[in-house]
Amino acid sequence: MNKLKQRWGISSNFQLFVIFIVFAINGSLSARISSFCMSFLGLNKDNLPLFFYYLILIVLVMPLYPFLLIVIGFIFGQFPFFFAFSKKMLQSMGLGWVFKS
């Protein structure tokens, strides 16, 4: 855990715990919202092959995840950490222009 704390620039175990909680909430919430959007559009496992269903679900989750990460991180008081983390994530997806300073 010390290597992770050092890599992320975290000072306490409590902060690390909060960050793990934010990641857990964000992952579940982004999948839930994406699933809701697909249901709203009438896309489900019954009318799509499973491959296309999960492909569309992943395509919806990928851009939603970093933005929700910032919002949930802000709620838990970890905005600076998650803003930088999301910025790196979007840059790796080729969307670095979104947070260009």
Rank of each mutant, 00 (worst) to 15 (best):
F79D: 00
L48F: 11
Y65K: 03
N26G: 09
F83P: 00
P49D: 15
S86I: 01
F79A: 13
F52Y: 15
M89R: 13
I70N: 03
Q78L: 06
F36G: 05
L68N: 03
Y54P: 07
L69A: 06
C37M: 14
L41F: 13
F67E: 01
I25F: 07
L90Y: 03
V61N: 11
L41V: 07
G73H: 02
I75R: 07
P80W: 03
M62V: 15
S35P: 00
F51L: 15
F83V: 05
L60K: 01
F79L: 14
V59A: 15
L60Y: 04
L68D: 01
L55I: 07
G42Y: 02
L50Y: 11
L43Y: 11
I75C: 09
F76M: 06
F82S: 04
M38I: 03
L41A: 15
V59I: 15
F40V: 12
I58R: 08
P49K: 10
L50P: 09
F82E: 04
F82P: 06
Q78K: 08
L57V: 02
F40H: 10
G73Q: 04
G42F: 01
N44D: 14
A31D: 10
L60W: 01
K45P: 00
S30R: 03
G77E: 10
M62Q: 12
I72V: 13
F76P: 07
V71I: 12
K87C: 04
F85E: 10
A24M: 13
N26C: 11
F51G: 11
F51R: 13
L43R: 08
F85Q: 10
I75S: 06
S34W: 02
L41S: 12
S34V: 04
F82L: 05
F81M: 09
A84D: 13
Y65C: 02
S34N: 08
L50Q: 12
K88S: 14
R32V: 09
S28I: 12
M62T: 15
A24Y: 09
S34Y: 02
M62C: 14
A31Y: 08
F76E: 06
C37I: 12
L55K: 09
K88W: 07
L50H: 12
F82Q: 05
M89W: 12
G77T: 05
